[in-house]
Design a protein around this nucleic acid. Structure first.
Lengths: 165, 165
DNA sequence: CTGAACGTTCAGTAGAAATTGAACGTTCAG
DNA sequence: CTGAACGTTCAATTTCTACTGAACGTTCAG
């Protein structure tokens, strides 16, 4: 493994960690970004020096977060993982979902909290207003990005689509 | 302490936790949202049943994240905390900063990784393009929100500004 | 049917993060 | 000067999280 590749992979691990995600998930993401073809769990375990159990768990985390994608290969029983081609949209969608969970919490609070807590209720409403605004802005962003991605792309910018045999 | 208030506070704690932040920080945020006037560290420790050390650490975390604000009171040596009036803008700014740190990582990688890793370099460039797009969109969002906030506000939506003696 | 190759899960464990409680430095009233 | 009231910090401890390695169920070739 190349020295600079390792450095990149480790930095991805740290970046994920500061975002509150497992370091190994970040490392896997770094590895997937660098490698030409999709990787099996054993590939990942081997290259990163982590157990297969951990690779499995973290790949599934990456998949559920919209960062990676599980693919299969004809005549092969193994799972392979690669960077999700629609990573951008999927991660924005995940962000939206998290915000909506906060909104649900705030709405519940407004339903249950007594009217006497005027100030509190007003603040909670304000936080809700802002996050509703955010959700709608995120929607716009997703649409704008989809437009950009499907555009002619003069200076190259695709994430996946390298066809593998 | 009201039953529904407690419930709200605990849910805020859990919400923060799923975002990778200390549960206590979320609880403090919930408490600050509900309370009429700014709270001292002893107020917070008392109401939440946590040590003063923890209150201090978490309040400073909330302050650095743009969620809460430290204020003082004439003739009082204590620090008081309240929800930051510009919470929305400050948290967007924090999000931007995190994305920029990822961008720096990606740019470094492009500088150091050898040209042979065509595919990897292309993917990294693509992730960078998307996140540069995001940073610029966040900027727009901040400006739009600032516009909305300063507007007439027919149905009420301010976060702070309750003047305390 | 047998055994190898998979991915998943789980108990045990190592490691990290959060919390406590006490110590400390500072400020200030008396 | 003295002592009380602060906020901060840090070592010890508790609590959580992530990882490992093994066990398990499944699929499939022979």
């Amino acid at each position: 493994m190349h020295k600079d590749s390792e450095r990149f992979i480790e930095r991805m691990g740290l970046q994920f960690e500061t975002d509150g995600l497992p370091r190994t998930a970040g490392r896997i993401m770094g590895l997937l970004l660098l490698r030409e073809a999709p990787l099996s769990l054993d590939d990942i375990s081997g290259e990163l020096g982590v157990s297969k159990g951990s690779s499995s768990t973290n790949c599934r985390l990456l998949e559920s977060g919209g960062w990676a994608e599980r693919v299969s290969r004809r005549g092969d029983r193994r799972d392979f993982y690669q960077v999700a081609p629609d990573m951008a949209l999927r991660s924005l969608d995940a962000a939206q979902t998290r915000i909506k969970s906060l909104l649900a919490l705030l709405d519940d609070a407004l339903e249950s909290l007594p009217a006497e807590l005027e100030t509190g209720r007003r603040r909670i409403r304000a936080v809700g207003d802002f996050h509703r605004f955010l959700v709608s802005e995120l929607q716009d962003i997703m649409e704008r990005w989809a437009r950009i991605e499907s555009a002619p792309a003069e200076s190259g910018s695709d994430l996946g689509e390298g066809s593998h045999d």
